[in-house]
Amino acid sequence: MATTQLRIPSDHRFLEPAQVLIERIGRIAGVEEDELTSLSIAVMELVKNGMEHGNGLDPEKRVSIAMEALPGRVVVEVEDEGSWVPAEGIGLEPAEGEALMADRGRGILIARNLARWLDFSLSPEGRTRVTLIWPLS
């Protein structure tokens, strides 16, 4: 499967269409049927982070999602138009105490736990890029 790329505006109205497309591409790439929801949850967490933290919910700015099936795995890259990385250690462990009851801040934790591998970096253009690897059974 060639790399499939989606570019969506930073607008909540595009979340559901993007989620549907991610599952369709995942299915074509060979992701197990009962893992498609987990895949789309993990990717959409990253897409929402890109929209909010990278693009400030500016609908003129886009989030790019590239998905490629390689032997034994699907590689997903989510890139926004910002230049940020989460604080070290974010999303490695669930919150404790009062922080457990925060309204926000669980997206990266969920994406890290659902995917087998997740890494934040900057693209050669200096944009935030998150790479997620999803193993195929």
């Binding site: 929801t37 949850i41 967490e45 929402k48 925060a102 309204d103 669980r106 997206g107 969920i110």
Partner: peptide
């Protein structure tokens, strides 16, 4: 389908 946004509103 639900993600962290849904959890946030439940909390």
């Amino acid at each position: 389908w639900m993600d962290s946004s849904g959890l946030g509103v439940i909390v």
